Simulated scan of single mutants.
Amino acid sequence: MELPGGCFGPVPDRDQQEDEAGDAALRLAEYEEVIDDSGPDLREMLCLFFGVKGADLEVYLALLDIPYATTLELAERAEKDQSNINKRLSNLRDANLAARQSRKQENGGYEYRYYGRPLTETVQWLNQQVESWSDDIH
């Protein structure tokens, strides 16, 4: 299931991403406060619609906090090994919640930097999906 716009559309400006960075876990908690307590919380919705589970969500939040992060930077932030981070990034990319940008290095190799779909955009899309599903049920 993809969010509108394919795989994020154009690559966001790094400065714009950094302006939106901060403590993603706090922003997630703020969104959860607004959601009616009788329904699923945001974490459950991310799992339901995207298949994003706890460890994936932790890396997604780290991506929101560190725009254009390398796997090493994410591993240090999440206190996990890089192979675990790569698996989580793969899951997030499959769910269209993360994307990567490659850059050729002088030594001939490539460096990959990852960025997450902004939380506000993800929440808006989830709300639209829930509304659509609710309308279909009624």
Rank of each mutant, 00 (worst) to 15 (best):
I35H: 03
G54I: 00
P40F: 08
G5S: 13
R88I: 00
C7Q: 12
E121D: 15
Q124Y: 06
D13R: 10
D37A: 15
Q16F: 08
E106F: 11
Y112M: 01
A21R: 04
L63P: 00
L72G: 07
F50S: 05
P67I: 06
S134Q: 15
M45K: 09
N127F: 09
D81W: 07
R88N: 03
G39R: 13
R14G: 01
N96A: 08
A69N: 01
A95E: 10
Q129E: 15
E33N: 14
T122K: 01
S134K: 09
Q17P: 00
C7R: 14
L126T: 06
W125M: 09
L119P: 02
L89M: 14
R93D: 03
V52L: 13
N86F: 02
I66C: 02
L92D: 09
Y110P: 01
E32Y: 08
S134E: 11
Y60C: 04
E18C: 07
N86M: 05
Q17L: 15
F50W: 07
L74G: 08
A78P: 03
A24S: 10
R88A: 01
D19C: 03
A69C: 12
V11C: 10
L46R: 02
A78H: 00
D15K: 10
D36W: 12
E79Q: 15
R117P: 10
P118W: 03
Q16L: 15
Q82M: 11
N84F: 02
V130W: 01
D65H: 03
A25M: 06
S38T: 14
E33M: 15
E76M: 05
S102P: 04
E121H: 12
L63I: 01
K104E: 10
L97T: 12
E111K: 12
N84P: 00
Q82A: 09
Y112W: 10
V59T: 07
E44N: 13
V52Q: 05
G108D: 00
E44W: 13
L72N: 12
N96Q: 14
E18S: 02
A99E: 14
E2A: 11
Q101T: 13
T122H: 04
Y110C: 13
M1D: 08
L28F: 10
Q16W: 04
Q128R: 12
A25D: 03
E76P: 00
L126H: 03
R100N: 13
N84I: 02
